[in-house]
Nucleic acid binder design. Sequence first.
DNA 1: AAGTTGCA
DNA 2: TGGT
Length: 204
Amino acid sequence: MTTLPDGVRYIPEALDKSAQTDLLKEIRAVVAKAPLYTPRMPRTGKAMSVRMTNCGLLGWVTDKEHGYRYQPTHPVTGEPWPAMPDMLLDLWRTHSDWPDPPEACLVNFYDGPARMGLHQDKDEENLVAPVLSISLGDTAVFRVGPADGGRTCSFRLASGDIVILGGEGRMARHGVDRILPGTSSLLKDGGRLNLTLRRVTKAG
DNA sequence: AAGTTGCA
DNA sequence: TGGT
């Protein structure tokens, strides 16, 4: 594998098959209560290819009118986000090395052609706490590069893998080039779920 | 603005 | 096809 930027940690096979199945069940329950919606770019209103929902106290949302932000309610249903499953809190405790619990879990669903352009996570009030990402389902071609520009590298993220952007890597630029169809049987109809845990505010 | 395109 |  190509060299990762400083502060970007890749943990392959962090979740075994049984843990992936258990976690998927939890996320299905979240999606049943807080349906996936199509987020839209600020100003242009252009639809993103990824569909999203959240769980936890806060969720990341975007729309044409108000842009990128965190809020406590689902933008379509107006309901509070479902609670963060204990499994996710456990994974954060195990891997994040951060004292305060995560407030947001962004659930991104990538179907066959969905992608995500290179970006930095900077909508949080807390830009120091790490960002923890969990992959479920089909393999993604993930791209990551240093915060200040320069060369990016890409590698595959398979079901059960974890990536942590922490320390120097917190503001790393990252995105998803594409999904490799048929690479996992975890999701019956294919596609990829990515769960991103974040601390949004500064204090607990 | 987490998009798209176009070019090497 | 891949890196930006």
